[in-house]
C-alpha cells in the first residue's frame, strides 16, 4: 500500500493542506474520532512557523464557511470555546500520517468523539446493539 509515496509526505517535509487538513482522525484503538478541521500554527511573520496542534469541532469548522451562510452558522455555534465546541489536540499526539491521521491517545482522553460517547449508552439499550 502506497502509504508514504510522492511529494505529499517524506521524511522531513509534510504538505499540510494536501495530506493533513480535512483528514480522518483515528485514536489508538482505531476508532474514528473527528476530522482535522483546522491546524494551529505558532510563530510570526518572517520567522519559522511550527504546527502546534490539530483543531477539531463545530466551533472550529464554522469559521471555515464563507459569506452570509458562514456568518449565520457562526452566530448559531458561537465562537470557539475550548473544551466545549472546539478541541485542541497537541501535535505531539500524532503517531502517524497515512491515509488518515493516527493519534497516540484514546478519543475519551483527548476529548474527541464526544457525541458518539454520549449517545452510545442510549443506543446500547436496544437489543442487538
Amino acid at each position: 500500500m502506497p502509504e508514504h509515496v510522492g511529494h505529499g509526505l517524506d521524511e522531513d517535509r509534510i504538505d499540510l493542506a494536501y495530506r493533513v487538513l480535512d483528514d480522518q482522525l483515528v485514536d489508538v484503538d482505531g476508532r474514528r474520532c473527528g476530522k482535522v478541521d483546522d491546524l494551529e500554527l505558532t510563530g510570526g511573520p518572517g520567522g519559522p512557523l511550527e504546527v502546534t496542534a490539530i483543531l477539531v469541532g463545530p466551533g472550529v469548522r464554522a469559521a471555515r464557511i464563507a459569506g452570509r451562510p458562514g456568518r449565520w452558522w457562526q452566530r448559531r455555534v458561537g465562537p470557539p470555546r475550548w473544551g466545549a465546541n472546539a478541541r485542541r489536540v497537541p501535535w505531539e499526539q500524532v503517531e502517524d500520517i497515512t491515509s488518515r491521521v493516527a493519534l497516540r491517545g484514546q478519543a475519551e482522553d483527548l476529548g474527541l468523539a464526544a457525541g458518539d460517547l454520549e449517545l452510545s449508552p442510549l443506543v446500547a439499550r436496544i437489543p442487538g446493539s
Binding site: R31, A113, G115, D116, S120, P121
Partner: peptide, 12 residues
C-alpha cells in the same frame, strides 16, 4: 469524521 459502518456494533 464520526465512527461509522455496519461492521461496528450499533453502540460503537
Amino acid at each position: 469524521g464520526w465512527e461509522w459502518g455496519k461492521y461496528r456494533r450499533a453502540r460503537d
